[in-house]
Nucleic acid binder design. Sequence first.
DNA 1: CTTGCACCTCACGCGACGTGAGGATGCAGT
DNA 2: ACTGCATCCTCACGTCGCGTGAGGTGCAAG
Lengths: 256, 256
Amino acid sequence: MGHSVGQVAAFAGVTVRTLHHYDEIGLLSPSGRSHAGHRRYEDADLDRLQQILYYRELGFPLDEIAVLISDPEADPMEHLRRQHSVLTERIERLRKMAAAVERAMEARKLGINLTPEEKFEVFGDHDPEQYAEEVEQRWGRTEAYRESQLRTASYTKEDWLRVQAEADDINTRIAALMDSGAEPMSEAAMDLAEEHRQHICRNFYDCTHHIHSCIAEMFVNDERFTTNIDAIKPGMAAFMRAAMLANAARALPEGS
Amino acid sequence: MGHSVGQVAAFAGVTVRTLHHYDEIGLLSPSGRSHAGHRRYEDADLDRLQQILYYRELGFPLDEIAVLISDPEADPMEHLRRQHSVLTERIERLRKMAAAVERAMEARKLGINLTPEEKFEVFGDHDPEQYAEEVEQRWGRTEAYRESQLRTASYTKEDWLRVQAEADDINTRIAALMDSGAEPMSEAAMDLAEEHRQHICRNFYDCTHHIHSCIAEMFVNDERFTTNIDAIKPGMAAFMRAAMLANAARALPEGS
DNA sequence: CTTGCACCTCACGCGACGTGAGGATGCAGT
DNA sequence: ACTGCATCCTCACGTCGCGTGAGGTGCAAG
């Protein structure tokens, strides 16, 4: 009775070294040794190993696995739920990446693909890196930024021009609204703010109302944004901030 | 002109250390240095970095990335196709894992979950490890085995009994077919072989016709399988082998 | 002239093992 | 009983993609 390392390794689909490693770090120590010091794994050890491999397959680090299978307090159901959400997140992320790759392929099929230089050309006078850097400093580690990086990576020159045109359109309509003497809290202003948010969602990343509110604050607190926006029409940055915050408050009535 | 490490790091959403590392391994060496020895990244370097991060995001190891973006022969479209297939594979894998987790949760919700001991009880006289070990030695490193491990890990006692019952049903019907004097290449025999394959697909892993053919060979070449199967009815192992191979040939008319 | 920041170069650490080196043990055949 | 040879043991260093200091330099502002 009892199995040798080699047998267990072959049975479980891992290497002998892996079992040695698990023994070293105390994750799975065989219940006994032969008189020559050879590891002897009993059925209980195999069960434990199976659990270890199960959690490992799900991407848990070994130290967490040790806690999971040793701690009788911890609710396994809770772990499963957490792990499921982790998996769905990863799947979603990969699906977005796959979509980005598909768009890149589409762009290639359509012939003219943009070189990085072209990508910068599109922005004309103002340097996109200025914004990108700023955005990065605030949102650098977020999913939103990575998503934006991935999505824009496959944008063609035409895409950029379209995005630019859409933004211009929204801006001119906001300027016109201001000329008409409308309040930033008015229905019309909030609708345009919402359009602005949707524009970001469509073209860059999933811009929640919360993120949009942060951007609104940046519009007035960051000179670079303020001057650029007020260049379209004086006072527009402040107008947009108010409209964007009102729009967010409209969508999220309570707190945060 | 030119950007410092810190600027590039902030812009690209990576750490300075990462850029140092890429410089160390020659993946991305800045085109110049300032008189003080500070790295100066030009726009071309940024483009290269963007590509590197793109491939990195897709999970390629750095040395492969170096080949991919340096090789002028390689068709970018080809890269994209490969990336896309890599992504879809991973998504599929994750989806299966998520499904396994869902089943595990389902099993918990239903209350009685099987202990490893129960899992073995089900098999009664013949030891499942015997097969598992054998299967592992031949399919150990394949996706199929890992999938099977994941799926069976969440099986309850009832699941095992059902699986067992299904297998018994197929076996008795094959035995009956043999009694009727049918040929192993007959339509009926091939249909039962296909049922056998589907049974594996449903309960263990994605058993392709190729894998099924390999199993067919094992049935006659491996005593352990042969004796167990011939115990149901003498000559049954050989009969099943022939039927399974014929079924595979029917599904895959040409080669391999 | 100090302060402070961004930069530099070592160089060790991590996580989960891979990959030998060098030696002891177990089992089969002769 | 002897000879292989596979399997086992214990160090112990290598890998990958960086993180994380340690200790020193360059440069502008106060």
